[in-house]
């Protein structure tokens, strides 16, 4: 019999082969993939790990080393920076 809390679908079921029989283990689901705030495209270079694992990771391993890294994709960043350049005082 499963424990009551494992009947909830917020737990992932993993089948594990043992020498005697097939048993199911219950694991937490992984967090969702990081997406760009503008175009909702999947972001590269961001680990899909539990918060506890993220704690022990270096800052440079958690997001790209550029402005808005880990928040915007590189294409959207370029668009923003182009606008910024064209709206700056040096564009006249």
């Amino acid at each position: 019999m499963t424990a009551g809390r494992f009947k909830s679908r917020s737990w992932r079921r993993v089948k594990v082969k043992t020498p005697k029989r097939l048993i199911t283990h219950y694991e937490r689901k992984k967090p969702k993939r990081a997406v760009c705030a503008i175009c909702k495209k999947e972001l590269h270079g961001i680990p899909r790990a539990f918060p506890k694992e993220l704690q022990s990771m270096a800052k440079t391993k958690k997001r790209p080393e550029r402005p808005y890294g880990g928040y915007l994709c590189s294409e959207c960043l370029r668009k923003i920076m182009k606008e910024k350049a064209r709206n700056s005082g040096f564009s006249k």
């Binding site: 960043l77 370029r78 920076m81 350049a85």
Partner: peptide, 15 residues
């Protein structure tokens, strides 16, 4: 010519 970098670590900076 004055430029702004739009990609990478230095993006948003003048050169």
């Amino acid at each position: 010519r004055l430029c702004m970098k739009i990609a990478g670590r230095d993006s948003g900076k003048y050169g």
